[in-house]
Design a protein around this nucleic acid. Structure first.
Lengths: 339, 339
DNA sequence: CTGTTAGCGCTTTCAT
DNA sequence: ATGAAAGCGCTAACAG
């Protein structure tokens, strides 16, 4: 790799001059600029960010910490982040936590050691993760720019973007209630973890608002996978009084639930209504097509990236909160309950 | 952030000594080691990789260049890469090309400027992309470690891992032929691009081997999305003599094709057999469940990461090729043709 | 408009 | 076993 000195020598100028033409940090005569550029081209010179970062602290790298990139919600979010950052000359290091607080801390440290200019974090637990919380607060104290997505620290004083998932869940319940359902179940991950909590709260809130009974046996925890959804639905179907509709914590779980119904000959939506969460691409393609609460994952990522960049430029801005909208996408898995 | 000087001062030693205890690059007396470690702990010191990289060239960052992280194949591959690298203390920068050669070059440059120690690349075009090819060859000439996944340069002299997708496609055709199908269609992305080429070649090869007619009108190009698959299947169904079975370039396309059949009342698998490609998680959950050629995406990523790390350590190793297996997963979308 | 000098955080000879 | 000094690629005053 050619260095700034090689270019300087070849162009017959000083390194600073070369630096100036690349950074436009001072006026340079047309003539020398051209000589420099020519020399650079001939040597295939690209300024090393490593070198400049040592003085400027600008690596144009940010760290993105998510649960698991294989989850479509995460990968859409990641793409939103990447697109927005890349346009501004930034690139990102992505690490997965699998919801493990230990790993979350480790991952944050490893990323930080690379001198990133900021973090975008989807916290796995909200306020229930002493280890990671402590570390993140420390970063914040060092004024490291951080934008949170989905969850956030138990602290209103940070930048974050949410999707009003709680409202989304409530919308879904309202819709089902409007259709005439009374026994509405919830299949829901671990309620106290990650994104599940808002969704669960929204469900409860709306059940109460609609004066519908909140039966513990209709609220079942599950893995947040299709297998988890399948098992959970079987448990619900085994009940003496199964629900006539269920809201699920994500689309994969919903699809698992559909499979369970299919296996048992329970027809959707005639005998069972199902609502998913996230609106992953496949949701439109299940047969019947899945009614679901759409999460603007890409937009959330894009927005978080925007906020982060802003904070990098103006560290003293007041903290910013953005609430995007979750919206119910009605398709074919929902209908009035059987008479 | 505390620097190595802060730690040295606090421990009453020289910076070199601190460096030595962290890098175990020379013997240090037990006593001073402990003092240094204590000082480091008190100051929350973590060696900055940026600083050391300037001399060692070791950033412990590698660049992963894929088409689109939102594609499940890519995200599984990425996770395989990340897990393997992270265990060895590496982290990765991920960028998307969307199959655009211009963007591919740009992305490679941006990543390189960050001093990455190597690349893992899933080339969008194989040997038909002068711009990107030229740049990649240049990297190779500079002895930058690169591992290719899926496709590779038109050059046997590089490290790469494939999935024998061509064999997988052939397997699928053989299976359909064995079932009695003669008119087997192929819905296939742009045949000359990215992963599609191997799959298309495998299809043709097996059609010929089975002495089946290779009809141009049964091979249709499409977007590699479910919408693309849906449209393509409609075109096939509009034919005077539609096929009785189709192989598709990926599962999303297959699912789109299923939707098209469903809309037209063509029953699967009785009137139409469909085979997907990739075995994304959702494939097991469509109704009926999708028969598909499984790609070991996670393993391919993991293997590529392994190869890359090996090359970083031993640049003079002979180039290595790994061929993982694609395997047909028979589920419920395939059956003998109608009589 | 351009050059000189020092320094960013760390490693690495070379001494001791 | 430890320290001093130079240097990695670049930027940022400070001169001129």
């Amino acid at each position: 790799m050619a260095t700034i000195y090689d270019v300087a020598q070849r162009a017959g100028v000083s390194p600073s001059t070369v630096s100036r033409v690349f950074n436009k940090t001072a006026a340079i005569s047309q003539a020398t600029r051209e000589r420099v550029l020519a020399a650079a081209r001939e040597l295939d010179y690209q300024p090393s960010i490593l070198g400049s970062a040592l003085t400027t602290k600008q690596t144009f790298i940010i760290g993105l910490v998510i649960t698991d990139i294989r989850n479509p919600y995460s990968s859409f979010l990641a793409r939103g982040v990447q697109d927005t950052l890349f346009k501004e000359g930034y690139v990102c290091i992505i690490c997965n936590t699998d919801g493990d607080p230990r790993r979350e801390v480790h991952v944050l440290q490893e990323i930080r050691r690379r001198g990133v200019n900021g973090f975008i974090i989807t916290p796995s637990f909200a306020g229930r993760n002493p280890e990671a919380d402590r570390y993140i607060r420390q970063l914040l104290a060092h004024r490291v720019p951080i934008a949170f997505v989905g969850n956030r620290l138990d602290d209103p004083n940070v930048d974050y973007v949410t999707s009003r998932a709680q409202d989304g869940a409530a919308q879904a319940v309202n819709y089902l209630a409007g259709l005439g359902h009374r026994a509405i179940g919830f299949i829901g991950g671990r309620y106290t973890q990650g994104v599940a909590v808002g969704r669960w709260l929204g469900y409860q809130e709306a059940m109460i608002a609609n004066r519908l009974p909140l039966c513990p046996e209709l609220m079942v925890e599950s893995d947040t996978t299709s297998e988890g959804g399948e098992q959970a639905m079987h448990r619900l179907l085994d009940l003496p009084n199964p629900p006539s509709a269920v809201l699920t914590v994500n689309d994969l779980v919903a699809i698992g639930a559909m499979v369970a119904c299919h296996r048992r000959g329970v027809s959707i939506p005639d005998q069972m209504s199902i609502v998913g969460f996230d609106n992953i691409p496949i949701a439109a393609l299940t047969i019947p097509a899945l009614t679901t609460v759409a999460q603007p994952a890409y937009e959330m990522g894009a927005k978080a990236a925007e906020m982060l960049l802003r904070r990098c430029q103006q560290p003293d801005l007041p903290p910013q909160q953005v609430h995007l909208r979750s919206s119910l996408v009605v398709r074919q898995t929902t209908a009035p309950p059987p008479a």
